[in-house]
Amino acid sequence: MSTFTEIHALAEQRSALNARLRSLLVEGLELPIVAGMIEDDQPLFGRGLELDSLDTLEIVSLVEEEFEVYITDDDKSVFGSINKVADYIVANRPRP
């Protein structure tokens, strides 16, 4: 069973990961918004951030460079939101 301290540390790590992803998207895609304005469950495509398929390729490249995680063609739902991208990174990043 995890202690409160361990759970708190995990929550902080996740918060930091989401914040880094928001910054990565804003800087890498040159979005005209402040990173903090992107909500964790806000849709990235369509009526959300209005990203397009070319941005998908850029996100794949950014995530690979930053986290050494390669997003494959198999599951495009990965791009649903910041939280979904973060879930994918947590599940697939190399273990230390």
Binding site: L54, T56, L57, V60, S61
Partner: peptide
């Protein structure tokens, strides 16, 4: 060639 996704290659 670099990143590939969804039929696109960088």
């Amino acid at each position: 060639a670099g990143t590939r996704f969804g039929g696109m290659t960088d």
